[in-house]
Amino acid sequence: MTLDYSIRPAARPSHRTLAESLTAVNARQERVEVRHGMPATPGWVTCASFLATPDAFARWRAGLARWLRTEYDESPDQTTAGYVMTWYMTIPAYVAALLFHHERRVPSLRPADLAFRTAYPRPHPGSIAVLSPGFACLPDDPAAGTPDALVVPDETALAGLLRGRYIEHARRFVDVYGPQVRFGRHTLFAAATDALDSSLWQAGRYAGDEGAGVLDAALVLGAREKPLTSGSTLRPGADGWTRRRESCCFHYLMERGQGECGTCPRVCPKS
């Protein structure tokens, strides 16, 4: 299917700083808190510190296992590993997708420049903070020419920069998490692919313009770029847009009578 980018209204930020942009986009969605700067309140951790802490993922999975047992009476090892691999990669994916969709800006996605705090009792990332004031933008951005702005020539270049920054964070995650779980690198990069594709789609959906989110996903993930495992898999479905997942979350292991999700790669063929 050919997507017509001319129908996507151009995002034009009216803000001078990234902090102002994050405040604006936070108000346009309700999924998680996104903000600039890490508060002094307990529970926050930078992605760099988290990735450098030997037992951080083990403790996260243990907390998730406790929650799953209260909800489903069991917590298979594959399921906690699957949830966490998706949840972690959603941190850089979602904040990047929101800023790209609404502001046509791309923040730093380095682990040292992102922080998060998990929610309670379901321990998903409930808050995400961008710590660096720097960002990439288009020539007509009101902050173009300021010290914090890296200007790129057009939307294609901006999308490519987002993808590249995201891949670098994903590589670091896979290097750290891979030895701790029974998943291969392909599965881990498949989860990273899912997180980015879904986040771009959801940024449009939550703003009331699902089609624009689909177009953003096609722009950022127009084709497979290794080590990601595919381009965008969004496609029209019976009830609107849907996508084929590249990775399995292993939720079906807790509801054995239900089987895999209809979009799971175990049951949904590639097209």
Rank of each mutant, 00 (worst) to 15 (best):
F50V: 04
W67R: 01
L114A: 03
L162S: 10
D55N: 12
R122Y: 11
L161N: 05
A65G: 08
F189L: 09
P107T: 14
L18K: 01
R245M: 05
P39Q: 06
G126T: 04
E168V: 14
M1N: 07
Y166S: 12
A27F: 05
V45A: 14
T193L: 08
D77T: 14
E30Y: 12
S14V: 10
G257P: 00
L150H: 13
P111I: 11
P13W: 00
V220S: 05
V176M: 06
H251K: 08
L99E: 12
S271M: 07
V130M: 03
I7D: 09
R205K: 11
G213T: 01
R256G: 10
L161K: 05
T233D: 03
E225I: 07
D113S: 14
G184P: 09
A112E: 15
A81F: 02
I128R: 01
S21V: 00
A143F: 05
P125M: 04
V220C: 08
E168S: 15
P147S: 13
P179H: 13
C264K: 00
D209F: 02
E255W: 04
C137Y: 03
F116L: 11
R171Q: 04
S230T: 13
E246P: 01
W87I: 01
R171K: 15
G257R: 09
S132Y: 06
R171M: 01
H251T: 09
I167M: 15
Y72E: 08
A159H: 14
S230N: 13
Y120Q: 10
V106N: 00
W44F: 09
G204H: 02
T90I: 07
Y94P: 02
R28D: 10
V25F: 03
L68D: 09
F173S: 06
S127W: 01
P54S: 11
D4W: 02
E33W: 03
S232F: 03
E260H: 10
G259Q: 08
D148V: 02
M254L: 07
F189G: 08
R266G: 03
A136S: 15
F116I: 08
R110S: 15
